[in-house]
């Protein structure tokens, strides 16, 4: 960990001011940032501690939805009565991630900004275009079991490792951002994370000095909500594949099918065409395959992670079959 100056921000303006500097970062829960600072993957010269600037409330919105403070912890969010009753897919996704100790400290804003677990990204003595633009990608032709099969580029095949954002994507949540100039902008969570393309160092759309203030959920969406995470241990492991699903059935046919996928790409994967293909169809293996065909249309493995393609298809079958049963 390099030396840095540490400042406690009292209000968001303090934080904005400090983090407008390219070499400064905001620290909230710190569970990901300090991990990376110890490895010198992150080397900020200044840290603004934003834990005491507020933005940790979970409250009802005017349209009956829920506003979740960026600085509320993952635990506070998952155990909130309204999250449990109205957005179970979100509670389930959060509870499937990390450990209780980490969720007790990790914040929602930080979780959205969680960086990849790619082995080459976290090892500063290996090439990585995300960490050091132009140094190459160690994972391509390296150890790539965890890596992306959708939307990767020849610059980077890393995945976004989180669970919470996958559920937020299925829920079509909005991310509220305080800009460096003092105004606010809102970005759908589905557009918050970036694909690597030629700018793999960019995880998401945040600019210097911008801070996430809240995430809003739409009015309760009902339906059968499932978060299914396939992993190598029964707990405390990152997803090989995960699916957040909000499903409704009417007269034996899908009437709603909002799905988002984790573990497959540099961002939670969402494809509107999947819902279109499912709605109005009966829950049969053929229907599930059609949805999987759309999901995996452009899928490409890198050897070690080839299995994710059939695994995603099979997990989708399991989730849709289960959801259709529950929703019927």
């Amino acid at each position: 960990m390099r030396p840095f100056s540490y400042t406690k921000a009292r209000v968001i303006e303090d934080a904005r001011q400090i983090t407008a500097d390219e070499s400064a970062m905001a620290i909230a829960g710190g569970t990901n940032l300090l991990d990376l600072m110890k490895l010198q993957v992150e080397t900020p010269h200044k840290l603004a501690d934003i834990n005491r600037i507020g933005f940790d409330e979970i409250k009802k919105t005017a349209d009956g939805g829920l506003s979740i403070g960026a600085l509320a912890t993952n635990t506070a969010t998952a155990v909130h009565p309204r999250v449990r009753s109205d957005y179970p897919v979100l509670a389930r996704a959060i509870l499937s991630g990390a450990t209780q100790q980490l969720r007790n400290k990790a914040t929602n804003g930080g979780n959205l900004c969680q960086r990849t677990r790619c082995f080459y990204f976290t090892n500063i003595d290996q090439p990585c275009n995300k960490r050091e633009p132009g140094s190459g990608c160690g994972a391509i032709d390296g150890i790539a079991k965890l890596h992306a099969v959708l939307g990767a580029s020849d610059q980077c095949i890393a995945t976004y490792p989180g669970d919470m954002a996958v559920a937020l994507s299925a829920l079509d949540a909005q991310v509220h951002i305080a800009t460096a100039g003092g105004s606010e902008r809102t970005v759908p969570v589905r557009d918050f994370h970036c694909l690597p393309g030629d700018t793999p160092w960019r995880d998401n759309v945040l600019e210097d000095g911008e801070i996430i203030t809240a995430i809003t959920l739409p009015a309760p969406v009902g339906g059968t909500q499932i978060y299914r995470k396939v992993r190598e241990r029964s707990s405390y492991a990152f997803a090989l594949v995960s699916i957040a699903a909000i499903v409704e059935m009417k007269d034996g046919l899908f009437s709603r099918a909002d799905l988002a996928f984790g573990g497959l790409a540099h961002k939670p994967w969402h494809d509107l065409r999947i819902a279109e293909a499912l709605i109005g169809q009966p829950p049969t293996a053929q229907t599930f395959d059609k949805a999987a065909d759309i999901l995996l249309e452009i899928a490409r493995g890198y050897g070690e992670n080839d299995f994710k393609i059939p695994l995603a298809r099979r997990t989708l079958h399991a989730v849709l079959e289960h959801a259709a049963e529950e929703a019927a």
Binding site: I27, L34, N51, Q101, N104, K105
Partner: peptide
């Protein structure tokens, strides 16, 4: 988890937090 401590009643990993915080 070997570093687990209880801060204000909540368990956390003490390795992933700065004392000054």
């Amino acid at each position: 988890g070997a570093c687990t401590v209880i801060v204000n009643g909540i368990r956390i990993n003490s390795c992933l937090t700065l004392a000054v915080m």
